[in-house]
Amino acid sequence: MASVYKSLSKTNGHEKEGPANGVKKNKQRVLILSSRGITYRHRHLLNDIASLLPHSRKDAKLDTKSKLYQLNELAELYNCNNVFFFEARKGKDLYLWMSKAPNGPTVKMHMQNLHTMEELHFTGNCLKGSRPILSFDASFDKEPHLRVIKELFLHIFGVPKGARKAKPFIDHVMGFTLADGKIWIRNYQINETEPSKAIPSDTADAAPKKKSGKDKDKETEVALVEIGPRFVLTPIVIQEGSFGGPIIYENKEFVSPNQVRSEIRLKKAGRYNARAEQGVERLAKKGELGLRTSGGRKMKRDELDTAELFA
């Protein structure tokens, strides 16, 4: 009964709020979880990200890797409209799924070069749960699939205004940059310092009243200090639904890490093959020149051969 009342009152409240604002409110909640078989670094990265996102809900590892549509139910259970899912394969490859929970789209990306906050000894720090400024590269607006990815980043990494555990000040910025077909993500602290004393010195004799008025609009100098974590994402696939539905984008240039590894292995195997081939070739060449005792062409007997001369 209570839940019914709660849901009713919630919807009522929402309706009331909707027309008053005139615009839809930015309401996001993110379900953060991973599959089984992630390494400690993946886990630490997940924790780092969860600590940066106060509007997130962390859940236990998902048992299955094939039935990802279960995530939709899980998200509904926790009232989340975004899913941020780490899928680990073979204990080394990490794939990141980002999805809008009830009905898509879903983006699958391959995560590389990941460094957690702990192993990067950066001096930056920020409030737990302060809302970040999201900085996007303009190339995100160029292609439709990148726009979808950007929107998902905006929903998942942008902390909504009224988030429960959010802090009221803004002290970090997240950068999303597209380079080399990959998305590079950085997290910086905003370090504000008073501007150097050189300029205020000539106005120092001005009245203190004026100074206090000036303080408000005086721009402090901004510098950034990196906080971490760092990682690079390669988009692979975009699905229309949430963990299902038709594939509406597939990255042709993505090479799976399995293939890379197998190629390296093949190359190594090729070294032996090439050497063995060379040996056979050399033998054949010797045979052709008649330099072998058995097989190959016999050399013509020379007139000046010792055996001929002293026969």
Partner: peptide
């Protein structure tokens, strides 16, 4: 999200004017 309609403090996202 209707970014143009929302106040900046709702989304806090900035896109560079030129691609990096």
């Amino acid at each position: 999200l209707p970014l143009s309609k929302l106040p900046f403090s709702e989304h806090q996202s900035v896109t560079t004017s030129e691609p990096v």
